[in-house]
Design a binder for these strands. Structure first.
Lengths: 160, 160
DNA sequence: GCGAATTAGGTTGTGCACAACTGAATTGCG
DNA sequence: CGCAATTCAGTTGTGCACAACCTAATTCGC
């Protein structure tokens, strides 16, 4: 292989490109959401709740693809700020139901032009937007599908 | 706006799609790199070093888009595992030079089919790969460009 | 009904990402 | 030269992501 620079080595890597874009998206959301002191993940949880009003921790985890280790502390923070309430379901005490408070519901209208601000910041054309969204969703679903097998991934120490 | 479910609300969001894909990419790398106990970010740092041999902390941060708050502890962990050395530059004592050890260099050949394994796991066609890479890079560069202005982003509390 | 297996959520520990700050070294301006 | 501004890396503190583990509640087989 011809000698390359570090920049050239990273350049063709799809995962690095996606990783970089994701962090930049995160940065934009951080700035847009700063006035409300919300993280991007907290914002996602609120979006889910604005559309369902009440969700269990498990259901929210399914929607966002996050586990209880991430959601439990996040939801406690939202609760401590009075945006949601958490309570064990009467029918099944293992289940915790997350419900919006009036304050949490109220944020919906305050934040409803965040997506437009975000779109402006990315400068994507409608075509680019659709293309990227389609690819990302296709990929996301394909990877979630267990038909592509994990494969044994132990070290092989093969030479070049 | 018509009533939607939480799933419908999240579905059209580009940022959520990208965020989900990035986390799934991370998951794949976590599994692929587990035998070597390397994180994805550590792997990226090593890729950069395999192509440059020696880099300063600042230069590495530029390449990966990371700051010293992320890199300092990461590089210390790599150092403690004997994969790199860190030393103040004689010419400018503020600068820390990161250099591969033989062990760090040796990982290059061991890990050189990680990209192929990754490609297999994503199941992307060559066209999809190129399309996504192109879009991600375009977007990444466009967002890095300060010509798209930050805009004042204080709360506006506008109604729906 | 009772005990094993399962399920839901929480806890702990590690590492990344980033803001804000610190301190030392260097540069530049007078 | 001498000191202010800048630069580089490191530190601290917060929050997310995830693995591994824990406990309580429920379900299922018998």
């Amino acid at each position: 292989m011809a000698r390359t620079t570090a920049a050239e080595a990273l350049d063709p890597m799809l995962c690095f490109a996606v990783y970089s874009v994701e962090r930049q998206f995160g940065q934009i959301y951080r700035e847009l959401l700063a006035p409300w002191k919300l993280s991007y993940t907290q914002y996602l949880a609120l979006i889910a709740l604005w559309n369902e009003e009440t969700l269990t921790v498990g259901r929210l985890g399914e929607l966002l693809g996050l586990d209880s280790g991430t959601l439990s502390p996040l939801l406690k923070r939202l609760e401590s700020r009075g945006l949601v309430t958490r309570s064990r379901a009467a029918a099944d005490e293992r289940v915790v139901e997350i419900t919006l408070t009036d304050a949490g519901r109220g944020l919906s209208s305050e934040l409803d032009d965040i997506p437009a601000c975000f779109g402006e910041r990315t400068g994507l054309s409608h075509d680019e937007y659709l293309q990227l969204l389609t690819l990302a969703k296709t990929l996301s679903e394909r990877m979630r599908d267990p038909s592509v097998q994990p494969k044994p991934n132990h070290p092989q120490g093969k030479g070049k």
